[in-house]
């Protein structure tokens, strides 16, 4: 495979997604940040006002987790349809199919990066300051998240061609992931004696936990905990490899089932 061509293909497809998304420039951008902001407000009402959760700087805490999470929701939510919605092209041309997924995940990553200024505004509003650490922290975590989401998306997109009810299970998966990741709570709020297994699962079986906690550390304290980053990187690479393997194995059958 010619590398220049591959690069161009990913670039043009990503550009296309972004162009379509921001066709109505400013309104498009506003819409894109409305979603995580809306979730922030809802969570504030539910957990702060009603449940009186005890977390310092709770609004900022929510924002630090929900903005990167938007990328997860967008990409994983669309993943089962990635190949189906390109059915006619896949049946006719031999372009490398995985670029559809790369382009989508990249597009959502850029979209997240464009929302970082909003996080900055909130950081200032709560009397803190963005840290220089962000300069390498954000790219580092983005890369990890990119691999993790690509791996999951390749798996979901490929399998959904063969098991079409996956798209329904997928919505449940996203909801479970949201509640199973410490986004609106911290793990130390869970009763250690009563729910030891639950804590163990959230800590060790959810690849998003170390990642989201890293985002929170980065945006709230300007710190990068390398141990935690490694704990996020390992599973991300593993899941990427598994996803690619599944995709590689099934891709010859795509045109037969579409």
């Amino acid at each position: 495979m010619n590398l220049e061509y591959y690069k161009d293909l990913v670039l043009v497809l990503t550009q296309k997604e972004i162009k379509v998304r921001y066709k109505n420039t400013f309104l498009g951008y506003l819409w894109s940040i409305t979603h995580p902001l809306f979730y922030t407000i809802i969570s504030l009402l539910a957990f702060k006002v009603i449940m009186r959760i005890q977390i310092e700087n709770y609004t900022l805490f929510l924002i630090a987790g929900l903005f990167p999470w938007q990328w997860v929701t967008n990409s994983i939510g669309a993943a089962p349809f990635m190949f189906i919605s390109n059915a006619s092209l896949i049946k006719k041309t031999a372009f490398p199919r995985e670029v559809v997924i790369l382009a989508d995940v990249l597009n959502n990553m850029i979209h997240f990066l464009l929302s970082v200024p909003v996080i900055v505004v909130f950081v200032f509003y709560y009397g803190q300051q963005p840290s220089w650490v962000w300069l390498y922290g954000i790219p580092l975590l983005c890369v990890i998240q990119f691999f993790l989401i690509c791996g999951l998306s390749m798996t979901l997109a490929s399998l959904n061609l063969f098991f079409r009810d996956l798209e329904r299970i997928n919505n449940l998966l996203i909801t479970a992931l949201f509640y199973g990741t410490p986004i609106f709570y911290t793990i130390d709020l869970i009763d250690k004696k009563k729910y030891a297994t639950l804590i163990f699962i959230v800590n060790n079986f959810n690849p998003f936990t170390p990642l989201v906690v890293s985002w929170q550390n980065l945006f709230m304290k300007g710190s990068v905990d390398m141990m935690l980053v490694l704990k996020a990187l390992g599973p991300a690479l593993l899941i990427f490899a598994i996803g690619y393997y599944i995709y590689r194995g099934l891709r010859w059958r795509f045109a037969e089932v579409l």
């Binding site: 010619n2 220049e4 061509y5 161009d8 293909l9 043009v12 497809l13 296309k16 162009k19 379509v20 066709k23 092209l89 041309t93 372009f95």
Partner: peptide
């Protein structure tokens, strides 16, 4: 949603051109 010009690029790339 893309213009004719943008679509030429998109189509050309999918069909194998850089």
């Amino acid at each position: 949603e893309l213009t004719g010009r943008e679509n030429i690029l998109l189509n050309g790339i999918i069909l194998g051109m850089t």
